[in-house]
Amino acid sequence: MTPNDPYPDVDDDTLVARYAMGDQSAARALTTRHASRLIALGYRMLGDRAEAEDVAQEALMRLWKTAADWQAGGAKLSTWLYRVASNLCIDRLRRARSEPLDAAPEQIDEAPSVEARLQTQSRAAALHAALATLPERQRLAVSLRFLDDLANPEIADIMELSVDAVESLLARGKRALAAQLRPMGDAL
């Protein structure tokens, strides 16, 4: 359970129903419970804290709008939120790719190699640099796997893929990450 959760004994479905009935404290509780993980997912996918917060805010906004129609006992709220946030991240990555270079903000950081980053930055920076080299769906699968220790069926549910497809993405993603990061073993 999340620290500072004002309603640790109240489940997500009940909080959503309370918010739909006008209880604003239920919205604060849901935010406290889920925002950190949504921001973490956004950060791992996008590599930018402000963008990660935008994604988490948008995912929660969609929850507020859906609350009155939320079906208790249906999809797990955390799974639904991860799915919304994942899709928002992928949309942003694709939009950024399709923007013409002239319209894109000037990149100061020219994506240095993992080794170069490692020399000046922390383990986290190296991890992010390595994650950024993965195709977006591998990156998402690996991030979800190590975020909250999610099981493969839940990742499959979030990504709307079969469990076999998730296993394949995870195997390739983890292998690629480990191949990049292991040689730095001592430094990491």
Binding site: Y19, G22, Q24, A27, R28, T31, A35, I39, E53, A56, Q57, L60, M61, W64, K65, A67
Partner: peptide, 13 residues
């Protein structure tokens, strides 16, 4: 962030 999200929730409600 928390202020923005709280404001969103109040606005939608």
């Amino acid at each position: 962030f928390l202020e923005r999200v709280t404001a969103d929730a109040a606005e939608v409600a």
